[in-house]
């Protein structure tokens, strides 16, 4: 049962990442990141089914709420306010993005490989995918132009970090809590304030225009 769920979770993470990579439509991206957030919120429960306790439940619920619901909604609103629904001409096109994603997956596999020895067989793919998600988020930030897409990339990366923490450092729930805090901050500050201001000041949120400060 748990294994099936776990496999499902892993698969969802993978698929959402791939979707994030090859779409240029913002609503789709927000949806993907929401699904990913939801799944990753569930992840600790699945991973530690046998020793589940109250605090874990609470954390998981908060995470699901934030990552799966609140942040995507905030993003959606900013998107509508800014009036953008497409990532036009990203630096890296969808196909190439996918290829790079494949490479990143291989990289995460390579880096996480030594973990295999110390993890149960069925759990191994969790850190691999977590790391992949981190890289994927970074890649999204790097390869997309709109501020809002960058935030999505950042959220993806956060998801990865959280998943990573959930899979590895379950003995130290403090870390997991930190992840929550971080997400709240990012959600509130970056999105709520910064995008709002950028929108007001520049009339669009294309970060290409945010490059007057150089050298």
């Amino acid at each position: 049962m748990e294994h099936t769920i776990l496999n499902l979770v892993v698969l969802t993470i993978l698929l959402s990442n791939i979707r994030l990579l090859n779409t240029s439509r913002l609503p789709v991206m927000i949806l993907s990141v929401a699904i990913q957030g939801f799944v990753i919120g569930v992840l600790p429960l699945v991973l530690h089914w046998e020793r589940i306790n109250l605090s874990l439940w609470i954390i998981a619920l908060i995470m699901i709420a934030i990552k799966g619901v609140i942040l995507p909604r905030l993003l959606h609103r900013s998107m509508q306010e800014a009036g953008v629904i497409r990532e036009v001409e990203p630096f890296v096109g969808p196909t190439v993005s996918l290829l790079i994603g494949l490479f990143l997956l291989a990289l995460s596999y390579w880096i996480t490989f030594p973990l295999r020895a110390s993890l149960p067989e069925e759990l191994f793919f969790v850190p691999v995918l977590a790391l992949f998600t981190v890289f994927n988020g970074l890649f999204l930030i790097v390869s997309r132009k709109k501020a809002i897409t960058q935030v999505i990339g950042y959220l993806t990366m956060e998801n990865g970090v959280y998943a990573f923490g959930a899979s590895l450092a379950v003995d130290h729930p403090f870390l997991v809590e930190l992840g929550v805090l971080l997400d709240v901050w990012v959600g509130v500050f970056i999105m709520g304030i910064a995008i709002y201001h950028i929108n007001r000041e520049f009339d669009h949120i294309d970060t290409d225009k945010l490059s007057t400060l150089k050298h």
Binding site: F139, V142, L213
Partner: peptide
């Protein structure tokens, strides 16, 4: 190298 775009800067980090 310091050409002003965030994307590039984050690429450096990565």
């Amino acid at each position: 190298l310091q050409e002003g775009r965030n994307q590039v800067y984050i690429l450096y980090i990565a």
